[in-house]
Design a protein around this nucleic acid. Structure first.
Length: 471
DNA sequence: TTTTGAGTTGTTCGA
DNA sequence: GTCGAACAACTCAAA
């Protein structure tokens, strides 16, 4: 069998069901289809770095990756005719756009000569097999997690020992130059300092976390000034690492006695699974609030407020630190993501979709399922959401989770000289303290763009206004 | 059908 | 400074 293997958000060779099956059956032509777009988002940078590495890996295994550009359907119609391919294999994706691409491929008449197979997506369990006793999808995490734990996560499939191409597959006209990858997106200069994308980089990062971090994960993950998270999100989002492989790696480390407390981390992996599961069963969640009453929510339009939030100049140090970390590194610590998102939604009353859209462009670890669930959770518009009256106080959150101001000093250097007890609320600091630290409010660092207490009251009133409504 | 228990990550206020 | 209650009901899922 001569099989085209279509790579998407599964940029690896380990635990790649489509690749493993194609390799077992015969010759393989690995293909990646770049979309035609002018502006590259932060996660496009990660994708392109990963592709360069995947190319080397596939070449070493025997069949180099072909880079194509355009609409996948057109590409495969042309490519299969030129190369005489007999099959097209790929791992399924759960996001709605990718699923409609898959459906179009499966239905396209001119591809009828191809044997097209969709393999399992990057999930731990089959979302159709994990349902309530009445056969409906779980809507809340607690029940989902309970049912999840009764199941067994499948073992990863092995890396093919070698791949063989077929001669006609080497169609020069269909191949873009490798140089197409050397992106000048503007992101690389910053991001290369923080990340080593690619399959191998994911293993290196996992081992570091396993040996130093996962043990204290439960507590340390909440403190943005500490390196206490896995920092695996980008690798999982791009598919550099398989979620099933990671799950079993944690289990193996546990069995070998290297990890005594794996549950808190495994539970977070289950949250990722739950986000994919919800997106699979409720594809409209990327665009619509799940709770109908939110369609009447009195969102404000506030271009200045939005721009200030994006720029990290809200006058709330923890929020500003988070937004600047995002711009600089393409990620944001989870706790700070919640506070920054909450600030946009509740303090500024800006629609959660506006925030989600900005994260889509700027997150190197952008994952549509996780991002959607996170924003809906903070907004309170999801099935399993934060109560409306839970409005983060960015000052209190700073004092609680960044007491020594480590994180704020790193990302908001103009406040670095302030003492710990002033750094979370410069606007309330003694003028002498400010002067000594070289801080001039409204000049070197902004005054708060909204008053917390007033904004809190306004948010509670807005939420009160949709209570009990049906949408 | 009805009942029951539970629900990722908080804040504020008053004793 | 510490601690418990109030904040609000509603939905989900299983018994």
């Amino acid at each position: 069998m001569k099989t085209i293997v279509w790579f998407r958000k599964d940029l690896r060779v380990h635990d790649h069901p489509a690749l493993a099956e194609a390799a077992a059956e015969g010759e393989v032509l690995p293909v990646y289809v770049l979309p035609e777009k002018e502006t590259l988002s932060a996660c496009d940078w990660w994708t392109r770095e990963s592709l360069a590495i995947l190319m080397d890996r596939l070449e070493a295994l025997g069949s180099p990756l072909k880079l194509m550009e355009g609409d996948p359907l057109d590409v495969f119609v042309r490519l299969s005719a030129e190369t005489g391919a007999e099959a097209l294999y790929f791992n399924g994706q759960v996001d709605p756009v990718s699923r409609s691409e898959e459906t179009a491929l499966l239905q396209e008449g001119s591809l009828n000569h191809l044997r097209i197979r969709r393999f399992v997506p990057d999930m731990m369990l089959d979302p159709d097999a994990l349902l309530t006793k009445s056969g409906t999808p779980f809507k809340v995490f607690g029940a989902f997690w309970k049912a999840f734990q009764q199941q067994t996560v499948p073992w990863p499939v092995p890396v093919p020992e070698s791949l063989s191409p077929w001669p006609e597959a080497d169609v020069e006209s269909a191949i873009l130059k490798d140089s197409r990858l050397s992106s000048e997106s503007g992101w690389e200069e910053k991001f290369l300092r923080y990340w080593s994308p690619g399959e191998n980089g994911s293993f290196v990062r996992w081992e570091a976390f396993r040996d130093n971090g996962i043990q204290d994960y439960k507590v340390k993950r909440d403190y943005p000034g500490i390196d206490g998270t896995s920092r695996l999100s980008g690798f999982l989002a791009s598919g550099n690492m398989s979620i099933r492989a990671l799950w079993h790696a944690v289990r193996r480390a546990e069995e070998e006695g290297d990890v005594l407390q794996p549950e808190p981390f495994l539970r977070q992996l289950a949250w990722r699974e739950f986000a994919y599961y919800q997106l699979y069963h409720f594809p409209s969640i990327t665009d619509e609030s799940l709770r109908p009453e939110f369609r009447k929510f009195p969102w404000r339009s506030d271009a200045d407020g939005l721009a200030t939030w994006k720029a990290g100049r809200t006058g709330y140090p923890l929020v500003d630190a988070g937004m600047r970390e995002l711009w600089e590194t393409g990620t944001m610590h989870n706790r700070v993501r919640m506070v920054a998102a909450s600030f946009l939604i509740k303090h500024l009353l800006i629609d959660w979709r506006t925030g989600a859209e900005y994260f889509k462009e700027t997150l190197a670890d952008y994952d549509i399922a996780n991002n959607t669930l996170g924003w809906q959770w903070v907004a309170g518009s999801g099935f399993d959401a934060a109560p409306y009256f839970r409005i983060f106080n960015p000052i209190t959150q700073g004092k609680k989770f960044d007491a020594a101001g480590t994180y704020i000093r790193r990302w908001v250097p103009e406040l670095a000289s302030l003492p710990d007890d002033a750094i979370h609320e410069p606007a309330a600091a003694d003028p002498e303290v400010l002067e000594e630290a070289g801080v001039i409010l409204g000049s070197t660092y902004p005054e708060p763009i909204v008053d917390h207490t007033a904004a809190r009251k306004r948010a509670l009133a807005a939420y009160d206004s949709i209570k009990g409504q049906k949408g």
